[in-house]
Simulated scan of single mutants.
Amino acid sequence: MTKKSGFAALIGRPNVGKSTLLNEMLGQKIAIMSDKPQTTRNRIQGVYTEERGQVVFIDTPGIHKPKHRLGDFMTKVAQTTLREVDVVLFLVDAKEGRGRGDDFIIERLKNLETPVFLVVNKIDEIHPDKLFEIIDDYRKLFDFTEVIPISALKGNNISTLIEQVFKYMEEGPQYYPEDQVTDHPERFLMSEMIREKVLHLTHEEVPHSIAVDIEQINRRKENAAVHVGAVIIVERSSQKGIIIGKQGKMLKEIGRKAREDIEALLGSKVFLELWVKVEKDWRNKGKYLKEFGYREDEY
């Protein structure tokens, strides 16, 4: 049987459910999820392989108006990705309706020759009758190749979405081994898992001014616990206090929850040590952006 392969980009405003959709399609967690916008900062590639072939789904940072160099980097990553794929999946939030951010993205989609799907997410949160209005509203602005309503959280219509993506893929090679689900190294995934727990547990108090740097991964013996040392970087001393918490309780809770995810990722016991460090205004400093994995020269 001839196999198909190719690349599909997930694009949309911050917080429309791109990471949730990617994890649902792959059947496991590789992208961090949070109810806070701009959770994804780098391109995260998820590899979906089955008998028809292989699709590499690329979860991009939500396109938004940048407020610092990190924001510039995130928007540039998302826009560069659009020019490199076979299909673009434009994800929108059915519950919120079309906003200025969606219009901004649609303007950029008009320059593409690539097939663009309108993927209406969170349909489980609206009345079915409202769906037709939402689709009509978007169709007035852009001639979408396909329109697919889904619920990434509940798994509704995901198989239909994958089937339609394969329709637009051409015959091609298998880029990754069939048991590989991401191109990112363990170190990156671990840092993202820790960052996700900080976002979940600190709520609005520590927004997006955090980064996580994995300083060491030590496998001393086979079948022994893996020692992981990581630093959580913040921009202000007050944020450091919030992350550590009273008598270190918050940091312990972040560590406990992150360790569970890292153990599932590595398939072994993990000893996780966390520190918190202040680097003022790191999101505007090229040295730190590079150090923490946001390489502006790659885009």
Score class of each variant (00 low, 15 high):
216 Q>M: 10
224 A>S: 15
206 V>P: 01
233 I>P: 00
253 E>C: 07
211 A>M: 06
244 I>A: 05
187 R>Y: 05
201 L>I: 07
219 R>L: 08
263 E>V: 06
235 E>V: 10
243 I>K: 02
242 I>V: 14
210 I>H: 01
210 I>C: 05
257 K>D: 13
228 V>N: 03
234 V>P: 03
250 M>W: 01
197 K>H: 01
230 A>Q: 06
256 R>M: 11
247 Q>G: 09
256 R>G: 04
237 S>T: 09
264 A>L: 13
257 K>P: 00
229 G>N: 13
192 E>L: 10
248 G>N: 10
206 V>A: 07
211 A>R: 01
253 E>K: 15
221 K>I: 09
236 R>Q: 14
195 R>M: 09
208 H>I: 02
263 E>Y: 03
236 R>F: 07
202 T>P: 03
213 D>T: 00
255 G>N: 04
259 R>E: 12
262 I>A: 02
200 H>F: 09
191 S>M: 12
200 H>A: 10
221 K>P: 00
250 M>K: 01
202 T>A: 15
246 K>A: 15
219 R>G: 00
258 A>F: 01
217 I>W: 00
193 M>T: 01
237 S>W: 00
251 L>V: 06
264 A>Q: 12
239 Q>A: 10
213 D>F: 11
226 V>H: 07
193 M>Q: 05
240 K>L: 13
